[in-house]
Amino acid sequence: TQTTHELTIPNNLIGCIIGRQGANINEIRQMSGAQIKIANPVEGSSGRQVTITGSAASISLAQYLINARLSSE
């Protein structure tokens, strides 16, 4: 079954999640098997909405990979 998880990434950290020309986010997508959508910046908001869709296992793996990127910054 597909589930969806949403999280907010601070604007100053979204770059390390996306990577150069989307390299990091594509790697996270491939490794986790989850669909990951990053919302466009919202004016006045300090973060970007990230939506992860997939199986429970792929979502938790995607979250783990995202958190690993954030903590390495």
Rank of each mutant, 00 (worst) to 15 (best):
E43H: 11
A34E: 00
Y64K: 15
R69W: 03
S46E: 09
I59V: 14
Q35V: 08
L70N: 04
S58K: 05
I28C: 02
A23E: 13
Q30D: 03
V42I: 12
E27S: 11
A57S: 12
T8S: 10
Q21G: 09
G22E: 15
I9Q: 01
R20W: 07
P10L: 02
L61I: 12
A23N: 07
A34F: 04
A68R: 12
A34C: 04
T1L: 14
I18W: 06
A62S: 03
A57G: 08
G19V: 00
T4K: 11
V50G: 01
A34P: 04
N26E: 11
R20N: 15
M31S: 07
I28H: 00
Q63F: 07
L7Y: 04
S46L: 14
T8Y: 13
Q49C: 12
N67E: 09
A62Q: 01
E43C: 07
A34Q: 02
S58D: 12
G15Y: 10
S32H: 00
G22K: 05
S58P: 03
I25F: 03
N11C: 07
I66F: 04
V50R: 01
S60P: 02
T4D: 05
G47P: 03
I17R: 00
E73S: 15
G47H: 08
S72L: 08
A39N: 14
P10D: 04
L61D: 13
G44S: 06
Q49W: 02
T3G: 15
R48G: 02
S32F: 00
A62F: 02
I38M: 05
T8E: 14
E6T: 15
S32A: 03
A34T: 13
R29Q: 14
G33C: 02
I52A: 02
V42H: 07
Q21W: 05
S32M: 02
E73T: 11
S45V: 11
I38R: 02
V50E: 02
H5N: 07
Y64G: 15
G54H: 04
E6H: 15
T4C: 09
S60W: 04
S72K: 10
N26A: 12
G33N: 04
A39P: 04
S46T: 10
I17T: 02
V42T: 09
G19D: 05
I17Y: 02
Q49K: 10
G44V: 05
G22W: 04
I36R: 01
N12G: 05
C16D: 10
T4V: 09
N40H: 09
Q35R: 13
S58H: 00
L61R: 15
Q21P: 03
R69M: 04
S32R: 01
Q49E: 07
G15I: 01
E6P: 00
I66D: 00
G22A: 06
N11Q: 08
G15L: 04
N40R: 12
L70R: 03
A39H: 14
T1M: 13
S72A: 11
G47L: 12
R48V: 09
P10A: 08
L61S: 14
Q2V: 12
T4P: 06
I36T: 03
L61M: 12
C16P: 11
Y64N: 15
V50F: 02
N12H: 12
L7C: 07
P41S: 10
Q63E: 12
I38Q: 01
A39R: 07
R20A: 13
R20P: 15
P10V: 02
S45Y: 11
S45M: 12
L65E: 07
S72V: 10
R69I: 06
P41E: 12
N67P: 01
P10T: 03
A68E: 15
G19Q: 03
R69S: 09
N40L: 07
N40G: 13
S55A: 06
N24P: 09
I17L: 11
I38A: 02
R29M: 11
I66G: 03
S72G: 11
Q21R: 12
Q2R: 13
S72W: 04
Q35Y: 06
N40F: 04
T4A: 09
H5Y: 09
M31L: 12
G19L: 01
S55W: 03
L7M: 14
T4H: 06
G19E: 04
S58G: 06
N11W: 04
I38N: 01
Q21M: 05
S55C: 06
P41T: 09
S71I: 04
L13F: 09
N26W: 05
L65I: 03
I18H: 01
S46F: 12
T1C: 06
S55P: 09
L7E: 05
I28N: 01
A39Y: 10
E27Y: 08
S71G: 10
Y64L: 11
A23R: 14
K37C: 04
G19S: 03
E27Q: 13
L13G: 03
T53R: 12
G33W: 04
G54P: 01
S60I: 05
R69L: 05
I28A: 02
C16L: 09
S60N: 06
E43Y: 10
P41I: 07
N26Q: 13
A39V: 04
R69C: 05
T1Y: 10
I25Y: 04
S72T: 15
A62C: 01
T51I: 09
S72C: 10
C16V: 09
I9T: 01
I38D: 01
G15F: 04
T53M: 10
I18K: 04
R20M: 08
P10E: 06
S58I: 00
R20F: 14
M31Y: 10
V50L: 10
T4N: 08
S55T: 12
G54Q: 00
G54T: 01
I9C: 01
M31G: 05
I9S: 00
A56E: 11
I14S: 04
A23T: 14
S46R: 09
S71L: 07
I52V: 06
Q30N: 15
I36K: 00
A39M: 09
N24T: 12
L13V: 04
S72Y: 08
K37D: 11
T51A: 07
L65D: 04
L13E: 10
Q2T: 15
N26T: 11
G19P: 04
P10Y: 01
L13T: 07
T8C: 14
T51D: 03
Q21H: 11
I18R: 02
R48E: 01
I38S: 01
A23S: 12
G19F: 02
G44L: 04
T3K: 15
I18N: 08
I59L: 05
E43N: 11
G44F: 07
I18V: 04
I25M: 07
I28T: 07
N40Y: 07
T53H: 03
I18E: 08
H5D: 05
G44P: 06
A23K: 14
N24R: 14
L13C: 07
Q63A: 10
I66C: 07
P41Y: 11
G47R: 10
G44D: 09
Q30L: 07
Q21E: 09
Q2M: 14
K37I: 15
R69H: 04
T3E: 15
N26D: 09
Q49H: 10
L61W: 06
Q30C: 05
R48W: 07
T1I: 14
V50Q: 00
I9F: 14
Q63K: 15
A34H: 03
E43P: 12
T53K: 14
G47Y: 12
N67K: 08
I14P: 02
Q49L: 13
Q35S: 12
N11I: 06
I36S: 02
S72I: 04
Q2D: 13
M31W: 05
P41Q: 13
L7S: 04
G19I: 03
A57H: 13
G44Y: 14
I14C: 06
T3A: 13
I36C: 06
N26R: 13
A56R: 11
Q2K: 14
T51Y: 10
A57I: 08
G15D: 12
G22I: 00
T8F: 14
G47W: 10
